[in-house]
Design a protein around this nucleic acid. Structure first.
Lengths: 343, 343
DNA sequence: CTGAAAGCGCTTACAG
DNA sequence: CTGAAAGCGCTTACAG
């Protein structure tokens, strides 16, 4: 049955050294002789000892855990992001406590649960927090970083990609290749990602004095995109559609092909956002905006850890540039290479 | 800056009660008068106090955290599973510490990192552990449950679905609808899921004295399925293919349509496994075996928590029955309803 | 380098 | 119901 846990005192007794010595054997850089360490290691192996990280966290006031809040894990973009976060934190020896939020809800009520466990820092993805809650974290000394979201005037770092620039570029791409009627399929309307993508796209269309864009809302889901496409063509006849994410774009493609009998890209050009794995599948070959996930993840982790280690580190507010992954779903100007980089 | 944390002593002083009283105010069921509790709550609110879960874990020897080990989060089946686990644990007030393993590796070296944090229990998905490690956990009193995997003679519970039965049923389905040459696309060959699905399928084909099945390995990925399909048709001419998971089946469908110019299901029938969301997309309409995810998740959580609360609870070894989600990728016998249930 | 001791912030018998 | 006290299993000054 459950046997008594073996503690550093047990190991000390077995090894014939003090309990402090045992602790030092497990503290990198502690001053301990090789002889003592060897004795401790032998005793620990014999007894099956492993330090208790909970006790260590309590006394050292450092849990070595970070909290990650995710929502929307059904959209394949986020599992890829989570996977990358996990691997990098594991490599660095950090543990992660995961929380699942409803998509794009405010997570003020979730945060106390994280804070209770004294996580050293928090990463928030596809959700937001109030500025009061951010201030509370900041007072507690727990740094917070928003990944792929921002909220103005909040005491948190924010790592995004250039959503506005992406929208502008897509508009240019469509217009440069002689599309007449552009359309936009929105994600969840009040998210910063959606607002920025839409703003850039729409603004650029206006600047170039093209026909005002058509728009429907797809809520970032396949089914939402599918239905939005149907509504779009019931109301008008666009020949170019920018979708706020890939999974909606895939729904749009299926709707055009199976219900509307339109050819892609001959009749309609489509560009998505995220460059998820499915976008490259033979059945779709979707042209898509590719955010630099790895750079964003690295920036997020680096800034968070810096702020954990030195609380005076300034907040980050970075906007990483994106690329275009060109495949077959859009008619584009001829001079664009296989992988186009917007700088 | 980082201000001194407010502790139960601070709250006690503010409220004019003992520190024990503060603790009791946060312990459900503790004997404390309403008056005292009110005073504590007022003081706590004023000071912004929240109990330190790390200290609680240390003294109560219960962390209220469970560890979940996942691999293969790129396959959309697992994010859906993770999402369900997360929501259910959050509802019950458990925290989860997440670990990412490489797919189907042995996670013996990962477990100590979990155990160090005194998780109350561990769930392992799409990976395995050695029986030595399982025994070690058991000695420590930390229950382990394998989700969708089993390893023989190991001190861990195991919740699976009926992989063997599924394989047999698919063989019957194909044979009953007059397919001549069956084929199998394997996942990762040494996984229990793959072995069981293949065993059931192959055995049933033999029992019915049909032509021996063709086989290629697709390693559970889209690309792997795509390439396996090409190899399959270079070597033979199957008219029915059972794929060990959906994502490979999708790759197979794309390969048949875009490279081999074969029609589905007129020329070739395809059945997948997992019933992931993508299987229902218009572009695929894949017929697939649907494991009862929610029942499996519930069984996993219930057994784990029971064993946490009462270590004498016996191990579970459950095999949940599966269903067939019928769509358009396979020619099937006419008398099967929309959603077929194998009991 | 080493050990004795204090203390992290709680829970929980124990006595009243 | 309430408080004083012990103790969970460590880290880390402090003194030698």
């Amino acid at each position: 049955m459950t046997q008594k846990r073996v503690t550093s005192f047990d190991v000390a007794r077995e090894a014939g050294v003090s309990q402090s010595a045992v602790s030092r054997a497990y503290t990198p850089g502690a001053s301990i002789s090789k002889r003592t360490r060897d004795k401790v290691e032998a005793a620990a192996r014999k007894l099956g000892y492993q330090p208790n990280a909970i006790a260590r966290s309590l006394i050292s006031r450092r849990s070595n855990m970070v909290g990650i809040v995710m929502a929307d894990i059904i959209n394949p973009f986020y599992p890829a992001v989570l996977d990358m976060f996990m691997r990098k934190f594991q490599e660095r020896g950090h543990r992660v406590m995961l929380f699942m939020a409803s998509r794009d809800q405010n997570i003020d009520d979730l945060l106390p649960q994280l804070l209770e466990y004294q996580v050293d820092g928090v990463i928030i993805t596809s959700s937001t927090l109030s500025s009061e809650m951010a201030e509370y974290c900041s007072k507690l000394g727990t740094p917070v970083t928003l990944f792929n979201r921002y909220v103005p005037d909040v005491e948190a770092s924010s790592i995004c990609c250039d959503n506005i620039g992406a929208g502008r570029s897509v508009a240019d791409l469509f217009l440069n290749s002689k599309h007449q009627q552009l359309a936009y399929i929105a994600g969840i309307e009040n998210t910063s990602t959606n607002k920025d993508r839409e703003y850039g796209y729409k603004t650029r269309i206006t600047e170039r004095r093209a026909k005002p864009m058509l728009k429907e809302v797809g809520n970032y889901t396949y089914e939402g995109g599918y239905q939005a496409a149907l509504r779009l063509f019931a109301a008008g006849q666009p020949d170019a559609i920018f979708c706020a994410n890939d999974i909606m774009a895939l729904g749009v493609m299926d709707a055009l092909r199976s219900e509307l009998k339109l050819r892609i890209p001959e009749d309609v050009s489509i560009i998505g956002f995220d460059d998820i794995a499915t976008a490259a599948w033979q059945g779709y070959r979707l042209t898509s905006i590719r955010p630099p996930i790895e750079r964003m993840v690295d920036a997020t982790i680096n800034n968070l850890i810096e702020r954990i280690e030195d609380p005076s580190t300034p907040l980050a507010a970075s906007i990483e540039s994106i690329e275009l992954a060109i495949r077959d779903s859009a008619r584009l100007p001829e001079h664009i290479g296989m992988l186009h980089s917007f700088e």
